[in-house]
Design a protein around this nucleic acid. Structure first.
Lengths: 113, 113
DNA sequence: CCGTATCCCAAGTGATACTG
DNA sequence: CAGTATCACTTGGGATACGG
């Protein structure tokens, strides 16, 4: 089963991905940006149920540090900041799609039982 | 960008997957079982760095409740318990593979920069 | 509007011991 | 060996206020 999966003595690829996407809200943020493209801070906040100001800020900053998302600030008053996926972030789209596909499949399976 | 991803008013598939795989150690456990097949409790513990007895127990139980893994107990002394992926768990393999592939790709990208 | 700092509580987690 | 219970503690993260 394992031959194409297990990197003997080299679990880094999997661990690396895990490190990037783990974080209470990161995948949700990535998913949202994948769906909505370029969006303002407030829009993200309103679309992620239950997230607090503090958590959104910190998660966005971490994703930015990992070059998954891009932060664009407009020099105006009141401030306007938009976030979007970087190329690296967009390269996560297959993963996101796989997650969607799996979730869909499961709901179909449940219906059949 | 969004057409194949965004389920307007229906984020359930993504959220459902998220619910299943989120948990501090779940993906690591799934990955390990994907690599090693059927393994005993103690082997899992020894192969996941930093996990405690309590955490491993609770995460295994949750994954079992979600039908991702199967628990098989042998009626002997001392006890022997083996865990493995269920069909539902195995259906997560593409996701795990995608995570591995992405991690690999990133390490190559970094080398080129 | 967006970001950060501070305070503070409680859920989550570790250590330990006990049971089957 | 595998699992559970208890207790104590750490720390994630919520509420709030202030700053740019």
């Amino acid at each position: 089963m394992a031959d194409t999966l297990c990197y003997v003595g080299n679990k880094e690829p999997f661990e690396y991905t895990l490190a990037v996407i783990s974080g209470k809200w990161k995948l949700k943020i990535i998913y949202l940006l994948a769906c909505m493209g370029t969006v303002r801070y407030g829009v993200i906040k309103r679309n992620i149920d239950g997230i607090t100001h503090k958590m959104l800020s910190s998660q966005l900053k971490e994703l930015e540090n990992e070059s998954i998302i891009e932060r664009r600030e407009y020099p105006q008053v009141p401030p306007k900041v938009e976030y979007s996926l970087t190329p690296k972030g967009k390269s996560l789209l297959p993963l996101v799609q796989e997650m969607c596909a799996w979730g869909e499949k499961q709901s179909r399976v449940e219906l059949m039982e």
